[in-house]
Amino acid sequence: MSRYPKPMARLIEELTRLPGIGPKTAQRLSFFLIGLSKEEAHNLASAIMEAKEKITFCSQCFQLTDADPCAICADQRRDRSIICVVEEPKDVIAIERTREFNGLYHVLHGAISPLEGIGPDQLRIPELMARLGPQVQEVLLATDPNVEGEATAMYLARVIKPLGIRVTRMAHGMPVGSDLEYVDEVTLGKALEGRREL
């Protein structure tokens, strides 16, 4: 690293902090950045600063937002009787891309993990419970279909059901475009279990 001029060495060091970026990639990126015009470099730097300064969490759903409440929570056309619970902010983006869901969201910022010592009180579960007023009729649990996601979904079902609210879970099934023979037995079993009439 000492072979680089000091400011460039610092840039490489900072880039190495990014996820999935090793020293080699960081060096390549730094050469690219040095090659940018002053204006382009300034735009990149100001975009990072603007995102850092303006992005906060929505006080209702805890999605990333630049205005509180976020665009989804503020939209009066959205169905307020159903809340979709997800683990991470990027899950909201994924579901929004489908254009199939018109309700509200709640981002937990993680999942219950008995093996990592992450319990219900370390997630945004109390805030979710506080949102479950009389207008909420259904909570859709869209946590990941892995051990942590299932633990979170089962825990939430146990605490929400006694309130008389309908609790639903995202369906498990075969990926669109896949070959049946390559689908593993667990997924196939779940797909059979959740079969529906045509």
Binding site: I112, P114, L115, G117, M154, R158, K161, P162, V167
Partner: peptide
């Protein structure tokens, strides 16, 4: 053990037959 706290939480929860 990290999982012990979760086990105690679950054991203390009322069962509702949802899972």
């Amino acid at each position: 053990l990290k999982s012990l706290e979760f086990l105690e939480t679950v054991k203390a929860m009322p069962k509702d037959g949802s899972d």
